[in-house]
Amino acid sequence: MTEARLPARWTMVWSRPVGWLLDHVLYRTAITGRSNVPKSGPVIFAGNHISFLDGPVMFGAAPRAMHILVKKEMFKGFLGRVLRASGQISIDRSGDRSALQLGKKVLDAGRCVGILPEGTRGSGTAGNISNGVAWLALMSGATVIPVAILGTRIGDEHRDSIPRLRRHLHVSFGAPLNVTRRNGESGRVSMDRAAAEIRAALAGHVQDAVKTTGQSLPGD
């Protein structure tokens, strides 16, 4: 994949089964809310971020294939080759319009994009998110699905830790959200409002998932 081209569809042929194996063989992942995901059309999966495994776990749990925006530092060596071969998109977190433009092209083609809008691993409360997800949603008209990912890091585990095998994980897909620009509203105001709406939806869904599953967030 190059940044000028859409990820090839064949990248999903092998990576989707690998995602399933991660969730259901290496780990024991309970998945809820899959019916909230539209069966067709562009979708942005926006998940909270507590662990290295959040993206792969969300990828394996989703009912539709997605291309995840992954920080460029991960695209090195063997892992970098795997990420490219599985159709993921490299993004510079300091500001990368080209990656967002490619994400928009993916959405315009009716596919799905995954993003962890908190940007860095933390408590996973979605207290703050980047405006990149809002830009994608506004510019593409894609439906946003908030995704709560729990169990990939618990208690006082270090942010760089990998959960032990066969741990129980939880992935919950929340109610769909659509954000649009309002008449007479400037681009900046629209962006800030859309980001606030997405943040509130994701933060609320994460808290609902914590209550429903009994799985707490890590103690950052």
Rank of each mutant, 00 (worst) to 15 (best):
109 A>R: 05
140 S>T: 14
65 A>R: 07
93 R>D: 11
116 L>G: 01
81 R>A: 14
121 R>M: 05
130 S>E: 09
122 G>E: 05
30 A>P: 00
54 D>P: 03
88 Q>T: 01
147 V>A: 00
64 R>T: 08
114 G>P: 00
45 F>W: 06
73 E>G: 01
108 D>V: 08
102 L>K: 02
95 G>N: 09
50 I>A: 13
20 W>V: 15
55 G>H: 04
97 R>G: 11
122 G>D: 06
77 G>V: 04
92 D>M: 07
41 G>L: 10
45 F>D: 03
14 W>C: 11
118 E>G: 05
80 G>C: 11
32 T>S: 13
115 I>S: 01
43 V>G: 01
144 V>R: 00
64 R>P: 05
122 G>Y: 03
129 I>Y: 05
128 N>A: 13
112 C>T: 08
78 F>H: 05
37 V>D: 06
44 I>N: 00
58 M>I: 15
95 G>P: 00
84 R>E: 12
126 A>T: 02
47 G>C: 14
124 G>L: 12
70 V>F: 06
83 L>N: 02
20 W>C: 13
25 V>N: 05
143 T>S: 09
131 N>G: 10
63 P>R: 00
12 M>N: 07
52 F>R: 08
60 G>Q: 04
139 M>V: 09
14 W>G: 11
68 I>E: 03
12 M>K: 08
82 V>Y: 15
100 L>Y: 00
62 A>M: 08
126 A>K: 02
60 G>S: 12
143 T>Y: 07
146 P>C: 04
94 S>E: 15
11 T>N: 11
26 L>V: 09
94 S>M: 13
144 V>E: 03
92 D>N: 14
45 F>M: 07
18 V>I: 14
122 G>S: 13
34 R>W: 10
42 P>E: 15
146 P>H: 08
102 L>Q: 04
17 P>M: 06
33 G>F: 05
131 N>D: 14
141 G>H: 13
25 V>K: 06
42 P>G: 14
147 V>E: 00
86 S>C: 14
125 T>A: 14
135 W>R: 12
35 S>Q: 15
134 A>Q: 04
74 M>I: 10
27 Y>S: 02
138 L>T: 03
97 R>I: 15
88 Q>Y: 04
106 V>S: 06
51 S>D: 12
135 W>A: 06
53 L>H: 07
95 G>Q: 10
40 S>R: 13
39 K>R: 12
102 L>Y: 01
34 R>N: 10
71 K>T: 13
68 I>W: 09
81 R>C: 10
146 P>I: 08
64 R>E: 13
57 V>W: 03
24 H>E: 09
140 S>G: 07
80 G>W: 06
138 L>C: 04
113 V>R: 00
79 L>R: 13
52 F>T: 04
19 G>V: 10
103 G>D: 08
137 A>I: 04
11 T>I: 06
67 H>F: 08
59 F>P: 01
71 K>N: 12
79 L>Y: 07
50 I>C: 13
51 S>M: 04
57 V>F: 06
15 S>G: 05
26 L>N: 02
30 A>F: 09
